[in-house]
Design a protein around this nucleic acid. Structure first.
Length: 882
DNA sequence: GCTTTGATC
DNA sequence: GTCCAGATCAAAGCA
């Protein structure tokens, strides 16, 4: 009977696995070790061991950097980038994994993994009676393929393999496996950094080999080579060719210290393997082991549940803590239909389609009971939904969504299943898996599957409660959760439910006027272009401007010409049509997004817009606003600003009142960097841009700063907040890169504390892998040590910006909580938050009080090393609150 | 579904 | 030399 030998090229498979999964999320263990290569390697092992059913297995590794090849050619593989640290740290674990799975691994000084494999291929062929399979990511090894040896090379990832038999090699390359070394001798190998014969590439090399059979034979018959130049090159590069062949040839007689008898495939060392999987966080592999020990963690495939009805509703009475999940048919919980719910605790779970049951005793009273803890996913959604049912949710303990967001903004999701799996509870599916996604999404609220999924959701929330809270405490983020995020969710729910009144008439009237202007400009553009086309199509516009009118191309996108504003602005002085296009763009933006867009989302019953704030989306801790976005209502252009006239109080005698933090990010910067000069400027109540202008332009203390200096200084101030680069600043201000650089250098010289902070925060990010805000909000920066300049630079800028933007976000959240508390007995309502601004509607009779109260609460929200400054405005509409 | 554009802080 | 300001959302065109 033939014996089955499996030989694996350890380094090359690890390398492939690492990059195949490099960008996937979640491949780090609890201890922060990267695990993508280990994981991929193990997947590959599972697959090939099952397929090949070998009796003998060997995994070969490279040993060190010098080999007999570097002795021949000192630059061998000299061009290779050094192996990334994230991969290097995984190699010992892969060796451990291999051993625990009952497989021998081997490495040999001065030889590469290839040579070990080549030697064992020969040993097996000499012994006869072996079928050998080689697994590798390196095509060079296909030279080993023969009647008894098959070489499988990774095609995609590490589990999809191409099978190279001698026939397949012949078909693919046109030559025999044994001729591959001759082929490479002629061609050289750029990835291993050794040269072949000048001007010989794939085609010529193949032709020569087909004609002569080998390098030796070519030189023996050099006169019959056709082509004068080719012949010259061959003669010239004779040494290179033979050298390259030697480098390409896999050594089949390496002095390996072990033999075929030493590499039997043994049983896995189960205990050690389980320990390793646990350490690495490999849930799915653990699960597949199916041993008594690992099984216990995964045995709750079925969770018992009961249909809740008016008859058994009293069983809820026994709960002194509960978990609840309400299922909706749409993400917009203000209007979505409530399809059903699950409620329960520990081992008692109920489901129902009838959300009206929630209004009945004892459920309603439990939900409103301040002594009964509630666990859920997305507290704000639950507040709003229950409010729609007339229930006031109290005492929320665990919000899995919020906690998950605070733990890691990178690996967050809106899906219970996704987050559960991320935190180690596998027995649940995602909504996409159960309901389908995109256009194919179908929820059947009467199906068994629906109820089961719902119960799995509540169950997993309950299951992960302690575990995730522990992580939160370990990260020192409990205060952030309890004192900021959880209370701010309640404040936001009140704001969303209240909504803001928007006058449809005002919008429609503006719309008609704008529509008229748009039509006029449209006609003018058609005349100027000499034809009608879709001005809104960048593609068609590009054809008109750059092909037909031959305007200079300034920037290209990957699909064609760029027609973005900065490009058009450069063209506008010389082309009237471009000026008109710019105006057309501006107006059509206002019409589609702000006039038509807003009219669509005004609730016809209360004439209000109820946005939804996303509290767990941004990487910095800011809020975002959707359905519609009320955080980007125009203000800069006068035409756009008029949109704000439609945002009015819900009562005629009231006013819109707005308070905003002045320069909050620069104040945060001054505070956290401890820079004395910057702090001094704020403490003295100076105009910060003027103060910076004086410093970087070297003006006297009382000298008047002209507008241009101030403008440039302002750009520098902003640049610093964003994590500056000279290029970015030059682009933004129109100055030269060199000039930008001197500004930045001068800035850092004048504000040395800022410079020191920026250097330190990047260093800190490298060391810990994350940066933090004043409230311990965290942002992980996986790219901070990336070898890709661009990615790394981005991570560095992020390291500088996030503590500033994020701390400002912390501050306004704290302020919102305090403000809401301060106005709770008044009629004044908080309506909107726009990052550094809070907007209210205020009855006339409370205006005097509010004018004092809001700024007072806001500027004392937190204590920084510089004062916070709040400016307030009010008027009959949001437009007039300026 | 992805790309381009443009609105905000 | 890398080619880049930070954070978002929505509409429209196009494949």
């Amino acid at each position: 009977m033939t014996k089955k030998l499996l030989l694996i090229d350890g380094n090359s498979i690890a390398f492939r696995a690492f990059y195949a999964l490099y960008n996937a999320n979640g491949f780090t263990s609890d201890s922060g070790l990267h695990t993508s290569a280990i994981y991929g390697f193990n997947r590959m092992l599972d697959k090939v061991l099952a397929e090949e059913e070998p009796t003998k297995v060997l995994v070969a590794f490279d040993a060190g950097k010098t080999t007999f090849r570097t002795a021949i050619f000192s630059d061998y593989k000299g061009d290779r980038l050094r192996t990334p640290q994230e991969l290097l740290e995984q190699i010992p674990y892969i060796k451990e994994l291999v051993e625990d799975r009952g497989i021998v691994s081997y490495e040999l000084d001065n030889y590469e993994a290839d040579d070990i494999i080549g030697t064992f291929v020969k040993l097996a062929e000499d012994a006869g009676d072996y079928q050998t399979t080689v697994i590798t990511g390196d095509r060079d090894l296909t030279q080993l393929s023969s009647d008894t040896t098959t070489v499988k090379v990774t095609k995609k990832g590490v589990t999809e393999l191409d099978t190279f038999t001698p026939e397949f090699v012949k078909e693919k390359l046109g030559i025999l496996p044994t001729q591959i070394v001759d082929f490479k001798g002629l061609k050289g190998d750029t990835s291993d950094n050794y040269p072949g014969v000048t001007k010989v590439g794939n085609v010529t090399a193949t032709k020569l080999i087909q004609q002569f059979g080998s390098i030796e034979s070519i030189y023996d018959n050099i006169e019959s080579v056709s082509g004068k130049k080719l012949k010259e090159h061959l003669i010239e590069d004779r040494d290179k060719a033979f050298n390259a062949k030697k480098l390409a040839t896999i050594n089949r007689n390496s002095p390996v210290g072990i033999g075929l008898d030493d590499i039997d495939f043994n049983n896995a060392k189960t205990e050690k393997l389980i320990k390793l999987y646990k350490e690495l966080g490999f849930k799915s592999f653990l699960k597949n082991m199916n041993t008594a020990e690992t099984k216990s963690d995964f045995e709750f495939n079925k969770i018992n549940y009961t249909q809740l009805t008016a008859d058994n509703i009293n069983e809820i009475n026994s709960f002194d803590e509960l978990t609840i999940q309400i299922e909706l048919d749409d993400e917009n919980y203000h209007q979505a239909e409530m399809l059903g719910f699950s409620i329960g605790f520990k081992d008692k779970w109920f489901v129902s389609n009838d959300v009206d049951l929630l209004k009945l005793s004892p459920i309603k009273s439990k939900l409103e009971d301040i002594t009964v803890k509630k666990n859920l996913f997305d507290v704000k959604k639950n507040y709003v939904c229950l409010h729609r049912l007339g229930i006031e949710l109290k005492n929320v303990d665990f919000d899995m969504l919020l906690v998950s967001y605070l733990l890691d903004t990178n690996n967050n999701s809106n899906d219970v299943g996704t987050i559960s799996k991320l935190h180690g509870y596998e027995n649940i599916r995602t909504d996409d898996e159960v309901y389908g996604k995109g256009a194919k999404k179908i929820i059947d609220p009467n199906s068994e599957e629906f109820f089961e999924h719902l119960v799995h959701k509540t169950y997993s929330i309950d299951y992960l409660h302690d575990k995730m809270f522990t992580k939160l405490n370990d990260n020192d983020q409990a205060k952030l959760y309890w004192d900021i995020e959880l209370p701010v969710a309640l404040v936001l729910s009140k704001m969303e439910i209240n909504g803001i009144t928007v006058s449809e008439t005002t919008l429609s009237e503006m719309g008609s006027k704008l529509q008229e202007r748009l039509s006029e400009i449209e006609q003018t553009i058609y005349q100027e272009a000499g034809e009608e086309f879709n001005i809104g199509s960048p593609k068609q516009l590009g054809v008109i401007l750059f092909d037909k009118l031959k305007l200079p191309v300034i920037k290209k996108t990957k699909t064609g010409y760029s027609t973005a504003v900065d490009v058009l602005e450069k063209l506008a002085p010389d082309a009237q049509i471009v000026q008109n296009v710019l105006e057309y763009r501006q107006i059509s933006k206002l019409l589609s997004t702000y006039i038509d867009g807003l009219i669509k989302v005004i609730n016809p019953n209360d004439h209000k817009i109820h946005t939804r704030y996303l509290q767990t989306l941004t990487q910095t801790g800011r809020l975002s606003s959707v359905d519609p976005n009320l955080q980007n209502i125009p203000i800069r252009s006068e035409d756009g600003r008029k949109i704000r006239k439609a945002f009015v109080p819900s009562d005629n005698n009231w006013v819109i009142f707005s308070s905003d933090y002045s320069q909050i990010e620069l104040r945060v910067l001054a505070s956290i960097t401890g820079d004395e000069n910057l702090q001094m400027a704020f403490k003295n109540g100076e105009d910060i841009h003027e103060a910076t202008a004086r410093r970087i332009f070297g003006l006297a203390k009382d000298e008047v700063v002209n507008g241009d200096y101030r403008r440039q200084a302002k750009a520098v101030n902003f640049g610093i907040v964003y994590g500056i680069s000279d290029y970015g600043l030059s682009q933004n201000t129109g100055i030269s890169r060199k000039q930008a650089k001197t500004f930045i250098d001068k800035y850092f010289a004048e504000y040395p504390g800022v410079k020191e902070y920026m250097d330190n925060i990047v260093k800190q990010a490298r060391e810990y892998g994350y940066v933090e805000t004043i409230a311990n909000r965290r942002r992980y920066l996986p790219d901070i040590n990336n070898r890709n300049f661009s990615k790394r630079s981005f991570a560095e800028r992020t390291a500088m910006n996030t503590p500033i933007q994020g701390s400002a976000a912390d501050i306004i959240k704290i302020a919102m909580i305090k403000v809401q508390e301060a106005i709770k007995d008044l009629d004044t309502k908080m309506l909107l938050q726009v990052h550094d601004e809070l907007i209210f509607e205020v009855p006339e009779y409370e205006l005097e009080q509010i004018k004092e109260l809001i700024p007072k609460v806001m500027d004392s929200a937190v204590k920084l090393e510089v004062p916070l400054k709040v400016e307030s405005n009010w008027g009959h509409s949001w437009y007039d609150a300026k």
